[in-house]
Amino acid sequence: MNTAVLITILATSVAAGAPVIYATVGEIFAERSGILNLGVEGMMLMGAVTGFIVAVKTGNPWAGVMAGMLAGGLLSLIHAFLTITLHADQVVSGLALTIFGAGLSSFVGQNYVGVQGPQFAPIHIPVLTDLPVLGPLLFNYDVLVYLSILLVPLAAYFIHHTRPGLHLRAVGEDPTTADVMGVSVARTRYIYTFVGGLLAGLGGAALSLAYTPGWTEGMSGGRGWIAIALVIFAFWEPWRAMVGAYLFGGVQALQFNLQAVGITIPTYYLNMLPYLFTILVLVFATGERMKRHLGAPAALGIPYIRGER
């Protein structure tokens, strides 16, 4: 394998990983507060279509990013209301969110399939981008990729080293105690479910405005579900989520570049790779969790009703 192909594969991994990082870190926030949201796929699709439409209408991709985040956030509030206020089953509510989001995105996006719109192009940084090897590897991405890299340490710091981060973890691990200490369980869960929605929407917008510009029905292609798997792989830690997202990106990059290396496998098999990879990663992570007794947030998926256990 020559260097050029290797660089392409590595760079594509990082670019393909960015939307997944957003969605995964978002789901980490929601699950850390005790809310399992299986609607990530639906929120990503709504983020992608809303982001794209607003970017086309305004000609401004940043307006698209904002709108995409808002769309994801608003959808997550449905899930929050049903599961936090009405104590509905989190699995079913999340599935409903995915079905609803997928349907609504194809409904509002019907006239935008194949439309050309504004997009985030890779930023050319003088001197740095032109460096051999390092240039294409480190300095040739669009702004949303850099932001996704920035998000990871920020999220990790927030969760482990700030007071609100402590409250977030407390609510997810032991809501009764958190409640007694004066942390509002419901408010905390609303906030972080919403944050999860914003980031899933951002992940969707990163797809339709940067990674694969344009809108096609179902364009997230299961990335929302892959994000949920990566949360488990990551043991609810942003840094490991980043590793997982780049591994996923690497599989995607391989999928696109195997032909270039002279390996011919029917595309139908190549298309299975990200999903088989996700299953494999999940099996591996579950095994390691059992061995090291690492747990999910203790209250994940359990509604909190004061005075009822």
Partner: peptide, 26 residues
């Protein structure tokens, strides 16, 4: 109208039935 309206209605029905359940349990 796009046929995805039936997916949207599926999701909506599930949302409302799910939300309505609480009134029978509590």
């Amino acid at each position: 109208l796009p046929r995805s309206i039936s997916d949207i209605l599926q999701g909506l029905i599930l949302f409302f039935v799910l939300g309505g359940e609480i009134f029978s349990r509590y």
